[in-house]
Design a protein around this nucleic acid. Structure first.
Length: 929
DNA sequence: GTACTCACG
DNA sequence: GACGTACGTGAGTACG
């Protein structure tokens, strides 16, 4: 039967589907061979969902998926700038294009494309044919360029927003009916397609003009009647350009197509054909789902075995006797020349301290081929036989400056890749000698990108695991504890095998890990989020932040006095003296001697005396209340006001933390020695410690922090429209949540209801449980569970996200961030309580990790962005960056840095929620908040 | 070296 | 139906 009345044609804008899928998903790759398939996966899911959603009485009788073919169309002949501002197709998308055609055919859908025409023109032609035949047509696309086709049985459907667009929708978008859309577009132009239009005229003005003059030809003919002088002149001056624009946006309804409407009749997919395609792509979940739905057996998809990886390079066994000690310039130059010829070299530095700010360079090792390594001793001391043997330089070392003069050009050579394990350390040490090491690869970060969540990434652990070799222990050389010596006191003959081995091992890691990046699909993660951070963090750490010792010292004294007073009171109340700082002794006093309620806990059979328990007791008794006060002061004093003083570098007067890039599984940084990411802020007393973090005279500290970034990411990932709307309108998100959950209007919100909603919002990010929420809010567990149930009722997308994420983790043993960072979850299928932990971690990791990725991207871009502004980035605290800036450049810095931070996800990920950044400034960190 | 406690996001 | 639970960190202290 020929297409006609009662028939319904679906036309899918296939190319738009592909791009949407590509940008919506992280860069997935096929497990077996690393072929990028993210866009194909998203495309198949969208097609499948569409088929599933169209089974009712309104189901299409005919359907086709339409694609663009080639980039040159008749529009380019009309106007050579047409779509000229389009970015080139991403490299990892190109190979996926033919696969989407295969996918379409596998679903047994007509697959239409035609050289020289855009998909839009083909869609326009079929839509006209359907209309003329008296049937209906639905265009599945959200592209406004196709709105001109709406009417007379032709509608559009936005699959993303799940809404139909008829005449009303077009009127809403363009202010005119479908038949005048072209006129409005011709005037307004289109920056996406690079259609010029009339300068200064947008959709609103265009619609106004068209509605007033009837159509574009009338308008242009009577342009001299326009009252506004500027608008009149624009139209007169650009009449030709406007006519050209109309030609560009007008779709060709008369493409000569090979397939007739009747050829597009819907056919059932062939189960075997479809499943074999999906299995070949290794889409495990979709294959299973489709098989289930079609009542067919799912083909098995082989799990690639890591051992079978064909790339494991053959390497000779590690042999310490083969390493060379370099003690003359000529030999050193030979090694350097070979490294330069090779284009890459593994290296390692030996120093006097783990603290790079004070470390002195003692020696350097190089490795060019596995097994071929050398050690260049530079400043080893001792070994002579006179009285000054201890401090005198050891024999057989190239003069320090001479050696550096040979090494420096190679270390700074753009064409020589320097490979190191934990490169930030070596980069910082060498920076002390005016050497800027670049470019670098870091094997620790390679491992982190590949294996986060599986194990740590230190050299010893990696060597055991991947080389089956235990490196020489440093302790055998320098000892440990009190009798530990510095590396410059180690005899050269002992130091050489150790040092050269490190470079050797590092090069072996590189050979193993680097090729795996592509296979695992984390090349972009490593290249954009890990490696570029090394020099950025090195500079931040070397900058340090100024800390006022006087302020800390005064606070320490004040705390000590208060603590002494509290201690006396506590002993008085207890009726005996004991060590208030000993939880064990305190537990005995509270529970045995005083007989308070609150039983045993802990593996050691000790009473638990945590703050939450003491807080409960404090409502009835004074002693636990005093202990809480004492504990707070004790913590502030020992961890902050006392300890921070010891970290002030005597040369710089500043505190230089160290960030570990590969410390936290989720992609967050961790700060150590000292930890500057947990400086107090929640309590008033603790917050004052931030007053000791100051700017130099004439400068100010600026703190910029992301507002609610994890909740925004959750709203985006889980697709929660209500939350997204609240963020778009700049609402108080916790109040908005409370309003939605408890049906309380925003203006009637009480602080208590808001507080509960806030706890739930945070709980959700952590993988909520009734027990945890109950404990946090101190409410009965049943009540907490009621809140959670209601929350999921109102935001069902959150539950779906949680379930989907856990299911993904169980199947793949990892979860990933929007930027493709993989966090492994090896415990996810464990039995027992471990599974609960792993499940919640799996829910949290993509959210926390995506936030971490975003601020990493901001940090990587920041230095270039603020170039010319006298400012330095000093600290990162997960969602906050702290800068020190010349007073008069503060506003410029805030503007520029905010722009970078707010836009950091782009262009890799387009978030459907706005990201906003709050800024503060002041003479110290407390004021800057 | 491990357990406990508590500071931060 | 019971079990055990908020996610991610680092550091200081007590104690064996």
């Amino acid at each position: 039967m020929a297409f006609g009345k009662g028939h319904h044609l679906h036309l899918v804008d296939g190319s738009a589907f592909i791009f949407r899928a590509y940008h919506a998903l992280p860069p997935l790759t096929r497990k077996s061979d690393g072929l990028p398939i993210g866009a194909v996966a998203g495309f198949c899911n969208m097609i499948y969902r569409m088929i599933e959603a169209n089974t009712g009485p309104d189901a299409p009788t005919h359907a086709a998926v339409i694609f663009d073919k080639g980039s040159h169309t008749f529009r380019n002949d009309l106007y050579d700038q047409y779509k000229a501002n389009r970015e080139a197709m991403p490299e990892d998308l190109r190979p996926q294009i033919p696969l989407t055609r295969d996918a379409t055919r596998a679903f047994n859908l007509a697959c239409i494309e035609m050289e020289g025409f855009e998909a839009d023109d083909i869609i326009a032609t079929y839509a006209r044919m359907a209309r003329e035949a008296g049937g209906r047509c639905t265009i599945i696309s959200s592209d406004k360029d196709m709105m001109q086709l709406v009417g007379d049985g032709v509608e559009m459907f936005d699959a993303m927003k799940n809404n139909r667009i008829g005449r009303d929708g077009v009127l809403e978008k363009f202010g005119v009916g479908p038949e005048r859309v072209v006129d409005v577009q011709a005037l307004a132009g289109d920056s996406v397609d690079n259609v010029p239009g009339a300068p200064g005229i947008g959709i609103k003005t265009a619609a106004l003009l068209i509605n007033e003059y009837g159509d574009l030809d009338q308008l242009l003919a009577r342009a001299d009647e326009i009252k506004q002088p500027k608008r009149r002149q624009t139209l007169i001056d650009h009449a030709d350009q406007i006519r050209l624009s109309r030609q560009l946006v007008l779709l060709d309804e008369n493409v000569d197509l090979a397939e007739s409407l009747d050829d597009l009749e819907v056919r059932e997919p062939d189960a075997e054909q479809l499943l074999s395609f999906l299995a070949e792509m290794e889409f495990r979940t979709l294959t299973k789902r489709v098989a289930e739905q079609m009542g067919a057996e799912a083909p098995t998809i082989a799990e690639p075995t890591p051992e079978a990886a064909p790339d494991a390079p053959e390497m000779p066994a590690i042999d310490h006797s083969k390493y060379e000690i370099v003690n003359d310039v000529k030999t050193l130059q030979d090694w350097v020349d070979r490294a330069v010829a090779r284009g890459e070299v593994a290296f390692d530095t030996e120093t006097t301290s783990l603290n790079e700010m004070v470390a002195e360079l003692v020696g350097v090792s190089l490795c060019i081929e596995p097994g071929e390594a050398c050690y260049i001793p530079l400043l080893h001391r001792g070994g002579g036989d006179d009285l000054f043997a201890d401090t005198a330089l050891a024999e057989g070392q190239i003069p320090f400056e001479d050696a550096l003069a040979v090494l420096k050009p190679m270390l700074e050579d753009d064409s020589v890749l320097k490979i190191a394990q934990n490169a930030k350390y070596d980069v910082k040490v060498l920076a002390n000698y005016g050497i800027t090491v670049a470019p670098i690869d870091d094997t620790m970060l390679l491992s982190y990108a590949l294996h986060a969540g599986l194990h740590n990434h230190g050299m010893d652990a990696l060597s055991e695991r991947y080389l089956g070799h235990t490196p020489l222990p440093i302790k055998a050389l320098i000892g440990s504890g009190k009798s530990q010596i510095t590396f410059d006191r180690v005899a050269i003959a002992d130091a050489a095998p150790y040092a050269a081995e490190d470079a050797d091992i590092t090069l072996r890691f590189h050979k193993l890990f680097k090729p795996k990046l592509h296979q695992v699909g984390v090349t972009k993660v490593y290249e954009r989020l890990e490696r570029p951070l090394v020099p950025v963090l090195a500079r931040m750490e070397r900058s340090g932040i100024k800390v006022d010792r006087e302020v800390l010292s005064r606070m320490s004294n004040a705390f000590a006095q208060k603590m002494a007073g509290l201690e006396a009171e506590i002993h008085e109340l207890a009726g005996e003296t004991f060590n208030v700082g000993s939880p064990a002794q305190l537990g005995e006093i509270l529970f045995d001697k005083m007989g308070l309620d609150g039983g045993k806990k802990g593996k050691a059979g000790k009473y638990s005396t945590g703050a939450d328990i003491l807080e409960d007791l404090a409502t009835e008794h004074d002693l636990p209340a005093r202990v809480l006060d004492w504990r707070q002061l004790s913590k502030l004093k020992s961890t902050y006001t006392d300890a921070l003083q010891d970290h002030i570098n005597p040369d710089t007067g500043r505190v230089h933390t160290s960030y570990s890039i590969a410390g936290a599984n989720t992609g967050r940084l961790a700060s150590t020695d000292p930890n500057l990411q947990n400086i107090p802020i929640r309590s008033e007393e603790g917050r004052r410690i931030r007053e000791a973090f100051v700017a130099e005279p004439g400068k100010v500290l600026v703190a910029l922090d992301y507002s609610q970034i994890e909740l925004r990411i959750l709203a985006h990932i889980a697709g929660i429209d209500a939350l997204k709307e609240a963020f778009k309108e700049g609402q108080d998100i916790h109040a908005a949540t409370a309003s939605e959950m408890f049906n309380v209007p925003l203006e009637d919100m009480t602080s208590d209801v808001r507080r509960q909603a806030k706890a739930i919002n945070f709980g959700v990010i952590y993988g909520i449980s009734g027990f945890g929420l109950a404990r946090n809010l101190r409410i009965p567990r049943a009540e907490a569970q009621g809140f959670i149930d209601r929350y999921f009722e109102r935001f069902p997308g959150i539950r779906t996200y949680m379930d989907d994420t856990k299911a993904f983790a169980k199947e793949n043993l990892y979860v990933q961030t929007l930027f493709g960072r993989k966090i492994h979850t090896p415990e996810i299928n464990a039995k027992g309580p471990g599974a609960g932990f792993a499940g919640r971690a799996a829910i949290n990791a993509p959210i926390q990790g995506t936030a971490a990725d975003i601020i990493r991207r901001a940090m990587v871009r920041m230095e270039d962005a603020i170039e010319g502004i006298p400012a330095k980035m000093l600290l990162q605290v997960h969602d906050e960056l702290v800068f020190e800036v010349d007073e008069d450049a503060t506003d410029a810095l805030i503007a520029r840095a905010r722009e970078v931070m707010e836009g950091a996800a782009h262009p890799a990920v387009h978030l459907s929620v706005p990201i906003t950044v709050d800024a503060g400034q002041g003479a110290n960190w407390a004021e800057a908040h």
